[in-house]
């Protein structure tokens, strides 16, 4: 994406498009990847509360449905906090 010149930018350091942070994918910072085991998961959503990057996907019924790898930074907190060992970390292969 070409960056705007100073003449094109809106003044006052404002961002006029809402939700632009969504375009910034932090998933590529990851060196470890969380693997979720739906068999063991009891949908307590503890991982959802602890995830610092809001990367635990939850559906409208309140059930965990997986991990959003676009934003997951691989910190491993979910693995640590899950009471059922339903998440484990693996080395990210790129």
């Amino acid at each position: 994406m070409a960056l705007s010149s100073w003449k094109e930018l809106p003044i006052g350091t404002i961002i006029t498009k809402p939700g632009s942070a969504r375009e910034f994918k932090t998933g590529d910072w990851r060196s470890q990847r969380p693997i979720w085991d739906p068999e063991k998961c009891i949908h307590c959503l503890i991982c959802f509360i602890y995830c610092p990057d809001s990367s635990i996907k939850v559906n409208s019924e309140g059930k965990m449905t997986g991990i959003d790898l676009d934003y997951c930074k691989g910190c491993g907190i979910c693995e640590e906090e899950c009471p059922k060992q339903a998440i484990h970390m693996e080395i990210e292969k790129r």
């Binding site: 809106p10 003044i11 006052g12 350091t13 404002i14 961002i15 006029t16 809402p18 632009s20």
Partner: peptide, 14 residues
Amino acid sequence: SPYSLFEKTITIGP
């Protein structure tokens, strides 16, 4: 004013 928080969703001072 150059912009207003109340007119549309904007981010100020990122």
